[in-house]
């Protein structure tokens, strides 16, 4: 699974992207977040308040209940502020 982090999510986690193979029990974005939170204090800080976070699965805005699989690209970021 390819994971991407943007803006302060990237800064808290300390990298822009990574390839991971989450356990088979991870089938949704929420389950992925629970798995990532255990990976260290940076992840814990990034995923502390999910209301402040948005997610995209395969480059489409998604919800935390969206399904994810081993070949998906999942991105975490704060609400967008372009324009």
């Amino acid at each position: 699974m390819k994971l991407l982090y943007f803006a302060w999510v990237r800064q808290k986690i300390g990298m822009p992207e990574e390839e991971l193979a989450p356990p088979e029990s991870v089938n949704t974005v929420s389950e992925l977040v629970d798995f990532l939170r255990q990976r260290g204090p940076g992840y814990e800080a990034a995923f502390r308040d999910l209301k402040a976070l948005r997610v995209a699965v395969n480059q489409h805005h998604s919800g935390f209940d969206a399904a994810v699989g081993p070949h998906d690209e999942v991105a975490f970021f704060p609400p967008v502020t372009g324009g």
């Binding site: 803006a7 805005h61 970021f77 609400p79 967008v80 502020t81 372009g82």
Partner: peptide
């Protein structure tokens, strides 16, 4: 402004801050 994935980091003499939506 509300959907395209861009994020602004503002720099001031006091430091840097991500703009909130």
């Amino acid at each position: 402004k509300t959907r395209a994935p861009f994020w602004k980091l503002e720099e001031r003499a006091s430091g840097s801050n991500w703009v909130e939506a």
